[in-house]
Write a protein that binds this DNA or RNA. Structure first.
Length: 475
DNA sequence: ATGTCC
């Protein structure tokens, strides 16, 4: 078993041993540390620390749990000159991410019947669950190349959103460098899921802004206590999944040619500057842009559903985009005066006030970073601080699983599930289909969020409480 | 996460 050494409040060290090139650091509160059972995730951090060109420290966030190659809740920086790029370091669901919309609708105005009507109107428009196709099939057929190369920008040009949405999306809704020529035919054929939600932890939820911790910043973010909020969590669906699968195979096969000794197939990687590395980056950008476009189209559908059910205009409803963050992505960024490729896997970028990569609208506050809890617990809006420099301005992306999907299905009873969901509405007819997503399968979101805010890496801005949740059904 | 194993 790997030992963690406490090196500060909520901060633990996994010291460099064996062929690790750098240390690893894990952020855990005392309670999260006591309950910590993620030996495999620590192995994965150690593995990442052995890769060529890895820089600084490999980081585990408080929501860390084992994943494919790099753990979920993992951050790995590599030097552009001599470092590697890893498809598994980004993850299967490229640019899985979450966006938050604010409204000017007082939540206490809505009774359960009305909330249900809203959820039904949203569900009528957005296919959910694994393997579901899109109602915007025309976009896939006629504009796919431009959408994956130009992301949300292309959709805004076509009228699927507001001009001002773009500033409120990480990378302004388009990661530069996408080239569909780097994407396999098989991946392209799976791109027909544009404008679908998917399954697993993906959701659309209606919530209420329950607590404000910082009035000034909340106002800039458009978050007012007691108003209805909408959160959309989805990614690049089968398209991104296929890109990761394709390039993991390529990287496993070519890594030896570059003298790379792979500790784990899931961490398959090649030099950033290699032909295969550059190709993967181009393809990954397509997956990133697909996911931005996916969330943009879902936003378009949600706004339409709201107009229909309320019979009011956007002007009266708000429905403004607060922000859209990526959870699974690799990006070229400058930290410590060095050009690095930051792999964030189940981790969120959180820039502090004044950082030049903030959008103009949020330059003086830092952009909102959105942290969803589980289907039955709160979510948070936070900002990064200057102290987040030590994590390459990265924070956790959610609560983190504490039970595997299988264990959750086996161990949680119907009564336990229903009591955890209390008076929260959910769309699923059969609770068994979402039992693996039960609140009990996740860590305590308050504890996880506090782990970073207590040591000043984040500042909490607002807390959101779910009222109604739309989930895709697994099997 | 995922046409959850071509």
């Amino acid at each position: 078993m790997i030992r963690l050494t406490k090196i500060g409040k909520n901060k633990f060290l996994l010291p460099k041993t064996g062929n690790m090139r750098v240390d690893a650091v894990v952020y855990l509160s005392e309670k999260l540390f006591r309950d910590f059972q993620e030996g495999e995730a620590l192995e994965q951090l150690k593995n990442a620390a052995t890769l060529p060109g890895v820089y600084g420290v490999v980081i585990g966030m408080p929501d860390i749990h084992s994943g494919f190659g790099l753990p979920i809740g993992g951050v790995m920086a590599t030097r552009v000159e001599d470092g590697v790029i890893s498809a598994g370091g980004v993850g299967m669901d490229i640019n899985c991410g979450v966006r938050l919309l604010s409204t000017s609708i007082p939540a206490d105005e809505l009774d359960k019947r009305f909330l249900r009507k809203l959820m039904d109107a949203i569900e009528d428009r957005i296919p959910t669950g694994i393997g579901k196709g899109s109602r915007h099939g025309n976009l896939y057929k006629s504009h796919f190349k431009e959408i994956v190369q130009r992301g949300a920008i292309k959709l805004i040009e076509m009228g699927y959103g507001r001009e001002e949405d773009l500033e409120c999306i990480e990378e302004n809704g388009c990661l530069d460098g996408a080239d569909i020529a780097a994407v396999s035919d098989e991946a392209v054929s799976r791109g027909n899921q544009l404008a679908t939600l998917g399954g697993g932890n993906h959701f659309i939820d209606l919530g209420v802004v329950e607590d404000i911790y910082n009035e000034k910043l909340a106002e800039v973010f458009g978050l007012k206590k007691g108003t209805l909020s909408i959160m959309i969590h989805t990614g690049s669906r089968g398209f991104g999944h296929q890109i990761c699968t394709d390039y993991t195979r390529i990287m496993v096969n070519t890594a030896p040619r570059y003298g790379i000794d792979l500790p784990d197939k899931g961490l398959a990687c090649v030099p950033i500057s290699s032909a295969e590395g550059r190709q993967y980056y181009k393809a990954m950008c397509c997956g990133v842009n697909f996911a931005f476009a996916n969330r943009q189209l879902i936003t378009y559908d949600v706004r339409e559903a709201f107009r229909e059910v309320f019979n009011r205009d956007d002007d009266e409803l708000g429905l403004d985009l607060v922000y859209d963050v990526a959870h699974n992505i690799a990006k070229f960024e400058t930290h410590f005066n060095r050009r690095l490729l930051i792999h964030r896997k189940g981790a969120t970028r959180a820039l502090p006030p004044g950082h030049p990569s903030n959008p103009k609208k949020y330059m003086e506050t830092g952009h909102p970073a959105i942290i969803p809890g589980s289907m039955g617990t709160a979510s948070y809006v936070v900002v990064g601080t200057e102290l987040a420099r030590e994590t390459f301005f990265s924070i956790n992306h959610g609560a983190g699983r504490v039970l595997s999907r299988g264990a959750a299905r086996k161990e949680i009873s119907q009564q336990e599930f229903e009591s955890a969901m209390a008076d929260i509405l959910y769309n699923t007819r059969n609770y068994k289909k979402v039992l693996d997503e039960a609140p009990q399968a996740y860590k305590d979101i308050d504890e996880v969020v506090n782990t970073l805010s207590e040591i000043g890496i984040t500042r909490k801005i607002a807390k959101l409480r779910p009222l109604g949740v739309i989930k895709g059904e697994g099997d």
